[in-house]
Amino acid sequence: MTRFGYTLMTEQSGPKDLVRYSVAAERHGFDFVASSDHYFPWLDVQGHAPYAWTLLGAVAQATERVELMTYVTCPTLRYHPAVVAQKAATLGVLSDGRFLLNVGAGENLNEHVVGQRWPAVGERQDMLEEAVEIIAALLTGDRVNYRGEFFRVDSAKLWDVPDERVQIGVAVSGPDSVTRFASLVDHLVAVEPDADAIRGWDAARDSGLAPSRKIGQIPICWDPDRKNAISRAHEQFRWFAGGWKVNADLPTTEAIDAASHFVLPQQVAARIPCGPDLDAIVEAVSAYWEAGFTDIALVQVGDAGQDGFLSTAAGPLLDRLRDAAPSD
């Protein structure tokens, strides 16, 4: 069965509203909520960047059923991997086992704040591999010593871990990362409906391991008025047109604003389904399950559109998505 999630977009909403949205998302039938983990918004106009881990702790107490996950945490610069492991284990306990840790190589925008240089992508992937090894070892509850090229851990142990181990997903960005991480973690995370990545992941994964979930994410901008939806999507999400390979290396919101300055509203609307047409949203989302994704998180663009989306469109949209998506 395909699972559908609601994204807690920390870049566009404050922490109290995000907790409230998560409660509504659970009530309206979403299977999981996925929180971004950023220090900055993508654009100044978005106006928010609360701390994801405090937010998810509050969501864990405000909800009962819905699964929680990061989408995604960078465990290499702003956070040491041993600290990420402790946060993940604690959240696993607080949520009664409802938490999934998704990690990735990060963006300069959020990692430069600690004053370290921004490594090239190959080095970031090397760092991520070490971080995953450390986090996975610590989540077992065992005492861990680690000496790597980038990280050291000295006799660390997590004293509070959930009954079931917190599982780990990794965001992949090409064939090399697919091959590298397929057998190191539990699940794949990606931002595009890339069927080749799914096939490559399954082929590279050790045969004795449990099947992986494939977790994707897609922005939508539901609104009763299509013009309003396009305007809001352009104002809030024109950075999306640059793609991860561009956005990952830009250091400031000003740089992202400049890089996306000439993106037109119609270009945004061509990539993000905008307006009240639920069938158009289903068609856009279908690219993910057709590529082999098992979990798809929706990003409703703009804080101003959240209450209307959740109260009016979310339930009927989920019904249509589940009718259309694979059931096994």
Rank of each mutant, 00 (worst) to 15 (best):
N102R: 09
V66E: 02
I135W: 01
V59I: 15
I135T: 01
H80G: 05
F99I: 06
Y71G: 08
G122R: 14
L91A: 02
V59W: 11
T73P: 04
L139K: 00
A60C: 13
G106S: 10
V103D: 03
L100A: 11
T90F: 04
K87Q: 15
A88F: 00
A136V: 10
E130K: 03
K87L: 13
N110I: 07
Q86C: 00
F99R: 04
A58P: 08
V114S: 08
A131H: 05
A60L: 11
L139W: 00
L139G: 00
G92T: 01
L138C: 00
N110M: 07
P81F: 01
V113P: 03
P81I: 01
Y71W: 12
S95F: 02
P75R: 01
A62N: 14
N102G: 15
L77M: 11
P75I: 02
N102M: 15
G122Q: 12
V59A: 11
E129T: 14
M69E: 12
G115K: 03
G115S: 03
Q86V: 00
V121A: 14
H112P: 04
E107S: 10
Q125Y: 14
Y79R: 06
W118N: 01
A89P: 01
V103A: 05
S95Q: 02
V84P: 01
A136L: 09
V103Q: 03
A85E: 00
T90Y: 04
L94S: 09
T90H: 05
V103C: 04
K87I: 06
M127I: 07
R78C: 04
L128F: 13
R65Q: 04
D126N: 09
I135L: 02
V103K: 02
G57C: 13
T90A: 11
E133A: 15
G115M: 03
L109V: 05
L139A: 00
T63S: 12
R65T: 05
L91T: 02
G57N: 13
E67A: 15
I135K: 00
A88P: 01
T63F: 10
A137M: 08
T63L: 10
L94G: 09
Q61E: 15
A105F: 10
V66F: 04
R78G: 06
A62G: 14
E130F: 04
T90W: 03
V113M: 08
L109P: 05
V83S: 05
A60D: 08
T70C: 08
L128C: 09
V121P: 10
G122P: 07
N110L: 06
A136H: 12
Q116A: 14
M127R: 14
A131I: 06
T63N: 08
S95W: 02
A58W: 15
V66G: 02
V103M: 07
L100M: 13
T76N: 09
V72K: 03
V114A: 06
E64I: 12
G104N: 05
H112R: 14
